[in-house]
Amino acid sequence: MYSIAITSRTLHFLQPAGTSRGVYTTRKSFYLTLSDSGRPGVTGLGECATLPDLSCDALPDGEYERTLRRFCTDFCRTGRLDIDALRPYPSMLFGLETAKAQLDAGGSTDFFGTPFGRGEEGIPINGLVWMGTFDEMYRRLEAKLEAGFRCVKLKIGAIDFDRELDLVRHIRRTFPREQVELRVDANGGFRPEEALQRLEALAPYGIHSIEQPVRQHQWREMVRLCAASPLPVALDEELIGVNDSTEKARLLDTLRPQYIVLKPSLHGGMAGTREWIRLAGERHIGSWITSALESNVGLNAVAQLTADVYGPHISLPQGLGTGRLFADNIPMPLAIRGDQLWACRQEKDRPDVTAPASDKNRWQ
């Protein structure tokens, strides 16, 4: 018989995380601790968290928790995940999938028995440079390169585009494309009438790809950009809220991007992410997986999924380096070594997601 305890916790960013949609200074997560009376002492932990103004299931706290409670109750009663019912709530599905995967793995953080999960190989990741002033972004870039990253993603759209272009130009004067792979993420920050011109301005500098150049739901413009862009276009926000398999296929067939970028807590949980990757692969569209500002609990789950989907010997850098964002992150056996994320199997840290008793609820 299953039971689930829920706690909530607010995490604090070490530095404000800026995107074209705003700046995050805190992140609230709900944690599910799943147990089974038939396996005493074994638990699975999952994280459910949304990003305001971005997640399709970003509900007010009270409504979010009530909805989450209902799905937890249904799962404990039936013993199975109702994927179809949970499709509109990807962050909740992801948390439940994570908790169940860890419980099924006997409580281990190695969910799927991969070389990564066993600590035998790392996953290559990109270094992430958040939006900021020219000087801030350049200092952050230097720090990533000094740490050994060979693929760096720049968040752009916060300062004047000409200054951002100056930064890209300066990078390429020092670091040729053979030495450092550059990705840029506009987070939908370009206006449709200027987007193609800006992509053409970036093209001479050997950019690997640009994520979401214009805001989602502008399909006519996105079709034109994907077809005419001198840079490979990767879709991210465009995929949010597209939960039905038929709708996913229609989006891919219509827009024809070169890549899709998948965040399980935004794009359908583990099940939805696997479905996106399958559909994209059938159309020769590339993909990679990235975290979405989760704590280390969610980051580990995303990494375990990545290793299971793409591994072993992953060559394309993934977006899994956000574990150092928070001042009060939850300990997990993860480490960044150079430009790779590793699972440290020798570590025995148990996540501590305790909260005041008033914040806890249990369903059976």
Rank of each mutant, 00 (worst) to 15 (best):
P88H: 06
T67G: 06
R69F: 09
L96D: 01
P88M: 07
I125A: 02
T98G: 10
T133P: 02
I125S: 04
T73V: 14
G117Y: 08
C72N: 02
D104A: 13
G62H: 13
R66Q: 14
Q102C: 03
E136F: 11
G122Y: 00
R77L: 14
R70C: 12
T98L: 08
D110K: 07
M137P: 00
N126H: 15
P115E: 01
L68A: 12
G119Q: 03
I125N: 02
R118L: 11
R69T: 14
T114L: 04
T133Y: 08
D74N: 11
D74I: 02
G122Q: 02
I123Y: 01
R118N: 07
D135G: 09
T67I: 10
C76R: 00
T109R: 01
Q102P: 00
G117H: 08
G132T: 08
Q102W: 00
A85E: 15
L81K: 05
R87Q: 14
A101D: 13
F71H: 10
A58G: 11
D84M: 12
T98V: 09
M131F: 05
A58K: 12
R70A: 14
C76N: 03
E65R: 15
F111H: 04
G95K: 00
P115T: 02
K100E: 12
F75H: 04
G95M: 05
D84G: 10
L86Y: 08
S91D: 06
D104H: 02
M92F: 10
G113M: 10
T114D: 02
G106I: 09
G113Q: 14
L93D: 01
A101C: 14
L68F: 11
E120I: 10
D135C: 10
T109A: 07
L93Q: 10
G132L: 07
D135A: 15
C72S: 04
T67K: 08
L103M: 08
G127T: 07
A85R: 15
I123C: 07
F111G: 00
E121L: 04
M137K: 05
N126R: 10
E136R: 12
T98M: 08
P88A: 08
R69N: 12
G119T: 02
L96F: 00
Y89M: 06
L59A: 11
C72H: 01
L96Y: 02
E121T: 06
F94V: 05
F71I: 10
E65I: 13
D104V: 07
R70S: 15
G79I: 11
G132W: 04
L128Q: 07
A105F: 13
M131C: 15
D82R: 11
R69M: 13
F75L: 13
K100L: 15
R69C: 12
M131G: 09
F116G: 00
V129C: 08
L81A: 07
P90I: 03
G79V: 08
L93C: 08
A101N: 13
G127F: 01
E120T: 10
R118T: 00
L103D: 06
P60N: 12
D84A: 15
F134A: 12
P124Y: 01
P124M: 08
D74T: 09
A101V: 05
R118D: 05
F94K: 02
R77N: 14
L128I: 15
C72Q: 00
M137D: 01
Q102S: 04
D74S: 11
P115V: 03
M131K: 08
G122R: 01
R66M: 11
W130E: 06
R77Y: 10
G107P: 01
F134Y: 15
L59R: 13
D61G: 00
F94M: 09
E97Y: 05
F111S: 01
F116M: 02
